[in-house]
Design a protein around this nucleic acid. Sequence first.
DNA 1: TAGATTGTTAATCGATTAACAATC
DNA 2: TAGATTGTTAATCGATTAACAATC
Lengths: 215, 215
Amino acid sequence: MTLRGRRKGEAVPQGVVVRLPIYFRYLTELESAGVERISSAQLGEALDFTAAQIRSDLSYFGSFGQQGYGYNVSELLHQVKQILGLQRVYSMVLVGAGNLGKAIGSYEGFRKRGFDIKAVFDIDPHLIGNHHAGCVIRSLDELPKYLEENQVDIGIIATPKEAGQSICDLFVQGGVPSIWNFSPTHLNTPDEVIVEDMHLTDSLLRLAFRMNERG
Amino acid sequence: MTLRGRRKGEAVPQGVVVRLPIYFRYLTELESAGVERISSAQLGEALDFTAAQIRSDLSYFGSFGQQGYGYNVSELLHQVKQILGLQRVYSMVLVGAGNLGKAIGSYEGFRKRGFDIKAVFDIDPHLIGNHHAGCVIRSLDELPKYLEENQVDIGIIATPKEAGQSICDLFVQGGVPSIWNFSPTHLNTPDEVIVEDMHLTDSLLRLAFRMNERG
DNA sequence: TAGATTGTTAATCGATTAACAATC
DNA sequence: TAGATTGTTAATCGATTAACAATC
């Protein structure tokens, strides 16, 4: 057992962070399908990574395999869940109940994995009072008070870009440690706040670029 | 003028592809705000990159700045648009008219930038015939015929994971060169097909991991 | 046991950065 | 002109891969 990244206090490389959820997703599929064991070579084949990369990624966190055998799917899935922090539940607050906010709020997959939307806020008076994702939509004015009274792990921003930074500031002032940002703007935050961007248009532009790069 | 990547036929590094849309987005904001010039140092400051990285990224495609001055915002924005391929229009087809499909279809930003949803398909008989994103929702059965008769640049998959690969196969068989995949599964495609994944849950899991990495 | 496959090392590959001549 | 800032090079840094001893 080495725990490279952890023991040495080194940051886990960005590439590893990107691949861990991919491993999690595929291992979940394998377990559902009743597959018991898998080798790094098979995992790599299925997910278009090299076997060495997968073994190297996993070895940042421990030794989960067995020579001559490979990995037990359930055991490895359990470990990856622990690594990702899925043994606990996360409370989330959603700001923005437009089309995208509605889609995020109504996706059952998040709740299933322990990510719970506890409250929904919007600035539009026509939406306030409506029910959504099992929550009443509240006025944005109430957000600061809500953050004072409730512990929130993740703030979700699903607003137009104009509102992104100001909602972000409200979250930061309210002590929310992490922000999941769907608003198409770069957020300025203190270093200790974790921001994960989900920029749909950026993704589409990468696709366009890659189409032109070849053709 | 050097055109490093292009002239040498080298692939543009992944990091550059990720940053180009970020530059585009911020330059668009600057232009709207009436800003005329900007230096690589200022761009870096605003977007949390080093100035050297920004100059290095741009130099893959040409020399767009001026010593002692920096970059003209409008001129650089124009160049970045060209680089990304935004001088043309892209025709898209959307499969999946659930909550996420609806959000994608009703986002005006895509159309504004030349990404046009031409048709929407779903497998649910209750949805077929409804109007959405200015299109009638058609039966999935009609997709192959549609792809025979219409030139489609980008296929969007906004279905549950179970349907992802089969919709992908229909797109590939229909000659669609690029796929924008929101279904939470890894797609197997021939090498020449470009796939851009938009996995919401993966993004949320990265956020969870990073929260645990510190705390 | 023989075969298979891990975890890890060292080598390779690629991306980022610091520095600076060129020059507006 | 003097000051500022580019584009590019060389140095550094980090991530990936190939190879293999360890061992189930």
